[in-house]
Computed example of a mutant assay.
Amino acid sequence: MDFRSDTVTKPTQSMRNAMAKAVVGDDVYGDDPTVNELEEWVAKENGFEAALFTTSGTQANLLALMSHCERGDEYLCGQQAHNYKFEAGGAAVLGSIQPQPIENNPDGTLDFNKLTAAIKPDDSHFARTKLLSLENTINGKVLPMQYLAEAREFVDFHGLQLHLDGARVYNAAAALDVEVKEIGKYFDSMTICLSKGLAAPIGSLLLGNKAFIAKARRIRKMLGGGMRQAGILAAAGKLALTEQVPQLKIDHSNAKKLALGLAAIDGFHVNPEFIHTNIVFAKLDSTVDIKSLAQKLSQDGITISPGNPVRFVTHNDISERDIDTVLEKIKAYR
């Protein structure tokens, strides 16, 4: 069992079957019917005009930033934002776009007063502020719907665009018990990752209006992201967004159980009330040798990422019984 991330999920047997039987064509020519069907379906399902199938969430976010912003522009985001902190500086390196990170509040939101202060004046000394990028979920926390509405009002007032890094937006929707389009309606663009808790082997989607997606498609080609018979992957992606969605609430329930169990172990500190979805962070006392613990667990076939805090992620390949097992082993090795 692997608790490092929900990116370690294996494709389901139905995905493997669908991939083997997928009708394919050359997607760069626009000839892959399975890709086309996925893009059209996901856009309509989530309230956008168009969508683009990409290799990864990192690529989808980069395409979004480069489509919203030109060289010398700036986007606002959180200090903990994935597209700022964990995507190799792609916006700056490849898009010549300046990130302006703002400290995230404990609940993952960004303070609108701080965002306002970060918007640059119309002056040749400064980058041009064009975009606010939010992430939902962020570190497993769900942004409240009221906050999203306020973010829309904020960008409209300041003449900005609004992007959502929605790598785990289906987790957010499951936790809020709403349809994804109820989250997406506040945004000009949105990404969806298929290869995390939704268990597809590869792929993400970028959603927006037709002109925006046409621009992103051109940039995707420029970045080497034009795929040929990509319907093999898109077939699994469609099942990720249909068959696998109910699994997310099970993952959330397992994460809550894991959080409660860890909180009862000496040296582990978890507030279960902060566990909104499938990600659990546990702060450790100095008495916990996390590297030694990780090594011992690995001998039992249990993989974690040693750190403080230590992150556990539940997913399709982690069962409720697995939660019991890992808690028993941690107690034994403490």
Rank of each mutant, 00 (worst) to 15 (best):
P309W: 05
G224C: 08
A22T: 00
L207Q: 02
A167W: 00
N278M: 00
Q247M: 08
A199Y: 02
W41I: 10
M66R: 08
L148M: 15
Y29K: 11
T242D: 07
L63T: 00
A60T: 06
K130R: 15
W41V: 11
A211N: 13
E37W: 07
G166H: 03
G47V: 07
L65S: 07
P11K: 01
V180H: 12
I202W: 13
T12A: 10
V8N: 07
A18C: 09
T191D: 05
G90M: 12
P144L: 01
E74Q: 14
Y75E: 02
R16F: 05
E135Q: 15
R228H: 11
L143P: 03
D31I: 10
K329C: 11
V310W: 01
E45A: 10
I102D: 00
M222H: 14
R4D: 13
F53P: 00
V8E: 04
F154Y: 01
N61F: 03
A51T: 04
V42E: 00
S133E: 10
T129C: 14
S56I: 15
D317M: 08
P106C: 00
N61K: 04
H269R: 09
K181R: 11
G72E: 12
N113V: 05
G47Q: 08
A236L: 08
H158M: 11
R152N: 03
S195P: 06
N36C: 11
K215M: 09
A151M: 07
G25C: 00
M66K: 05
K10I: 14
I290R: 01
R334W: 09
D73E: 11
W41K: 12
K329S: 09
V178G: 09
N254H: 11
G140P: 02
L160T: 03
S292H: 08
S292V: 03
K120V: 11
